[in-house]
């Protein structure tokens, strides 16, 4: 008999023990290890997926933030540019206004100066003219300036044409006042009488003349009646003198400006030379 029953029983027991031992030492640990590894890998993959989704979300968020930031920045830039433009325009306007004001003031000052100079010139010229005329007249003709003036005035009275005389007469009739003779100096008796006679000759019998001394009259004589006047003075000469002086002054200013510019240029050159 090939089958030994004791061995059969022993082998059955042996095999059962082997099954138990292998289960304990081989299958369970190995399967557990595999399961643990799979679980770990699955966890890692899940973790990676979560991180990826998170990263994706964050990326989108940051992109959105960037866009918003860009927009804000652009808006701010535009605002700033606008503000700068406005500010610049305002500043330019203010500066222009200021420069214009300054120029106006300067011009005004220049004009004032010119005017006062003119006046001064006129005053001096008058005095000079009178002094010269007086001297010349007394030296050459032995007559005083006042006498000569009176003569010329009388001449002009005689030279009046008829229309002018008529006009004067009608003016005299309308006016109730006396005929006034204004002079810059004291007339002598003889001169007064001559004027009275001349007036009487031209205008007919009149009320006695009224003589008034006005120093500002610039050494002239004039007859005033109801808004009409017959006059002689050296104002005309003075006006022409003033005009010629004005021209002279203008020319001088222009020349001075040119000279100043030239000086500035030269100075600049000097500075450059010094730098070299």
């Amino acid at each position: 008999m090939l089958i030994d029953w004791f061995t059969v029983i022993a082998q059955v027991i042996n095999f059962l023990i082997l099954v138990w031992l292998l289960k304990r030492f081989l299958y369970r640990p190995i399967l557990d290890a595999i399961d643990a590894r799979e679980k770990r890998i699955a966890a890692k993959i899940a973790d990676a997926e979560t991180k990826e989704t998170e990263a994706q979300k964050q990326r989108e968020e940051y992109q959105q933030k960037n866009e918003v930031f860009d927009q804000q920045r652009n808006a701010h830039m535009n605002e700033m540019q606008e503000a700068a433009k406005t500010e610049r325009a305002q500043l330019l306007d203010a500066a222009r206004q200021e420069s214009e004001d300054l120029r106006g003031r300067l011009e005004q000052a220049l004009r004032n100066e010119q005017q006062s100079l003119n006046e001064e010139l006129g005053r001096r010229a008058r005095e000079e003219v009178f002094a010269i005329a007086r001297k010349v007249l007394s030296d050459l003709a032995g007559t005083s300036l006042e006498q000569r003036m009176t003569d010329i005035f009388l001449d002009s009275l005689h030279k009046l044409n008829k229309a002018q005389i008529t006009e004067l007469k009608s003016a005299l009739k309308k006016s109730s006042d006396a005929l006034r003779v204004r002079t810059a100096f004291q007339l002598s008796e003889k001169q007064s009488a001559a004027i009275e006679t001349a007036v009487a000759e031209i205008l007919g019998k009149q009320k006695p003349l009224e003589f008034i001394i006005v120093p500002d009259l610039v050494s002239g004589i004039e007859i005033i009646s109801g808004g009409r006047k017959i006059a002689w003075s050296i104002t005309d000469y003075l006006d022409s003198l003033a005009n010629s002086v004005d021209d002279l002054l203008k020319n001088k200013t222009a020349t001075e400006g040119a000279v100043a510019e030239k000086t500035a240029a030269t100075t600049g050159q000097d500075v450059e030379n010094n730098e070299h």
């Binding site: 090939l2 089958i3 030994d4 029953w5 061995t7 059969v8 029983i9 022993a10 082998q11 059955v12 042996n14 095999f15 059962l16």
Partner: peptide, 15 residues
């Protein structure tokens, strides 16, 4: 080899 014994193979077959 223990599997060369009919007793062993019988034991396994009985299992």
């Amino acid at each position: 080899p223990p599997t060369g014994s009919l007793s062993t193979t019988t034991a396994l077959a009985i299992c």
